[in-house]
Design a protein around this nucleic acid. Structure first.
Lengths: 158, 158
DNA sequence: GCTTGACCTCAACTGAGGTTGAGGTGGGAT
DNA sequence: ATCCCACCTCAACCTCAGTTGAGGTCAAGC
């Protein structure tokens, strides 16, 4: 007999998946990667508390901004572990992304301008062109697919 | 005896790599994918004409905007095959990306606004939130890594 | 008592954009 | 004649963000 009242902080993975739109396999994956956590019941099934929904919301929102999971994890790691995160905690995280976004927007606007003046005028060439050679030393980041957001953190290990 | 004058439209891959900053392995890769072309000399070595530099510039610039190679190839396929592309040809391609960029910038600005109002006000939750649930039916694009630029073409097969 | 459905684990695969390495050839300088 | 370097091909590997599948457990319903 399924109670229709919510089981208050004791949700199954199927429930969380349905509520959040995040697939079960992705939930497994996020857990493996340390982005979310849960308890287990006696049958070893995952039981979630409701702040996992907040975390998932934050993860999805951050991904849409273009932040890689590794950076999202770092951000989430700053949340207080032993109390439920409050509004100001989430606000601080949002603030981080805002800076990234500002940079990215500014970058794209610069590119757009270069695109009109530079391709428009036909100067699309190496060396001279800001768009092609944006002052960095040309992709020295090892193998694998390139990150699409050039302004994304490389978590600022200063 | 190496001539110091440029061998006029008969450049080796090493030369092109050095001039463009694109690695040799990437040049091989682009050729395999049909983004660039070349002739071969008697010893089967690649010989490039100088408009490959233009193509590479376009490829790199497009990548920095976040366009996937497949779309870049489609764009390049529109270039005239049997004459050297002229300024207006490149201009048309640039125009395509400008539209993509405009959309992307607009999108990110919207996200940034959502981020202040939405995370700021603490409403970061599913269902209600534009940022988390931006009206699309939640990632139905098969397996593999997600594209970071949500506004990127899916080349408009209307 | 048997099926069904939701859950579990672990390993292998996907796609994009390449890099790395093994094994071989071509040609110029010593 | 030999060395070395630049080039060739082909296959395997890398990252990221997951998905897919095989094989197994647990509880409810008929």
């Amino acid at each position: 007999m399924k109670k229709n009242q919510e089981p208050a902080d004791d949700w199954s993975i199927g429930h969380i998946s349905a509520r959040s739109g995040v697939s079960i396999s992705a939930l497994h994956f996020y857990e493996r990667e340390g982005l979310i956590f849960c308890e287990r019941n006696l049958g070893n099934q995952r039981r979630y508390t409701r702040d996992v929904l907040r975390r998932l919301a934050f993860i999805r929102a951050s991904q849409r901004v273009g932040i890689p999971l590794a950076s999202i994890k770092e951000a989430l790691d700053e949340l207080p572990l032993k109390r439920t995160p409050r509004e100001e905690d989430w606000g601080r995280l949002g603030q981080r992304w805002k800076v990234v976004l500002d940079n990215q927007i500014e970058y794209l606007q610069r590119v757009r301008d270069d695109l009109s003046t530079c391709i428009g005028c036909g100067c699309l060439s190496f060396q001279r062109c800001q768009l092609v050679n944006p002052d960095d030393k040309m992709s020295e980041e090892g193998p694998g697919a390139r990150r699409l957001l050039p302004g994304t953190p490389r978590p600022d290990r200063s």
